[in-house]
Amino acid sequence: MADENNTDEREEEKISPWQQMIDNPFLLLFIGVAMPTVFYTLWGVMEIASLPVAPY
């Protein structure tokens, strides 16, 4: 058992950061919520909120 754990760890060292990201659901959850919140929601809300009042 101890042996197996060791190989696990050694292999993990070589694993690319992309794979580590893909294997981490909570990191993905953060990205998946942050992206649309920033680019879609916040950006959109700011544009609507900053519209000028009709000039007449």
Binding site: W18, I22, I31, G32, M35, P36, F39, Y40, W43, G44
Partner: peptide
């Protein structure tokens, strides 16, 4: 699938393409 996580949800914008008040930049990007 990772591209989905990054970008798919931005597409909500295509319901608002003829709406007033959202800029061309916002529309194009999203």
């Amino acid at each position: 699938y990772l591209l989905y996580i990054f970008f798919l949800q931005l597409a909500s914008a295509h319901h608002l393409l003829t709406d007033p008040g959202l800029s061309v930049e916002w529309k194009l990007f999203n």
